[in-house]
Amino acid sequence: MGLKQLLTRAGFLITLGLLSACDSGTPAANQEATTSSEDKPARVALVMKSLANEFFINMANGAETHQKDNADKYELIVNGIRNESDLAQQVSLIEQMMATQVDVIVVAPADSKSILPVAKRAIDQGITVINIDNKFDQELMAKMGVSIPFVGPDNRAGARKIGEYLAQQLTAGDQVAIIGGIPGAFNAQQRQAGFEDAMTAADINVVSIQAADWEQAKAATIAAAILSENPELKAILAANDSMALGAVAAVRQAGRSDDVLVVGFDNISAAQDMVKNGSMLATAEQYGDQLAVFGIEYALQILESGQSPEDKNTPVDLVTQESLQ
């Protein structure tokens, strides 16, 4: 029995070792770097939302590639949460990064308010915090007396661009529906507002606005319901591509692919294929794989110059069948 136990324990350790060896060499690099050099590179923690979502995976990969090219400048630790809405886990991650005394935390907050207190604590500890992807709540920031620079696309403007492109294919008075992200999230609100701006401007009738929490399956269910409820529906505007894919599936199942246009946001690869073959009308490229990099570069810049942080807009471009050719 003793032997068996020993074997269990050994097997367990080996497994752990192997698995972590499969990962990027960051930990080992950390050790060497921190022990050898006096003028040590900055340590940057990237705290993402769900790393099961292609958008954030691309962002993380982009950051890692960038780090490899700039290994002398900074080290990178990437973490994400289990599902988009697990606030507690994201707070934990930030605290853990604080415990490892990083210099910079670049965070894509899962909620625009709840992550603020922990971010404030990080700042108080002397860590430079940069906000990407989903903007912190301005009012609350002001109330708490912190200022965290947001580096990222103007979601409202981007959504408006998509909406305007869609409006060109429609006529005034047409019926459309909007499928939104998680209701509390800032970028969800911004994208929804951008869609609405464009629709109002073109005199198009938004008959339904529902949240599908960024999820494909949920979006498909909701889109199916909207479609059967509104036989005259001409388009569905989804606040991200995952939900747009769900909407496309629902449209196809309803047999209305010829009548109902679908637009998304984010330009994930599956959506790109859809746009190419015409199942989707358009999506928006916000250079997601570079978003984290923009944030990191900006952070490094602040670290070096000590300048007062300000928001920084990154580009959002429309993706259509023509633009892909």
Partner: peptide, 25 residues
């Protein structure tokens, strides 16, 4: 497990696999 793996910056996929293995172990 969660803290350690996060501090190491282990990728999400490996995190899940390792956590699962530790539960069973």
């Amino acid at each position: 497990m969660q803290t350690g793996l996060a501090q190491l910056g282990v990728s999400e996929s490996s995190k899940r696999i390792i956590t699962g293995l530790v539960i069973i172990a």
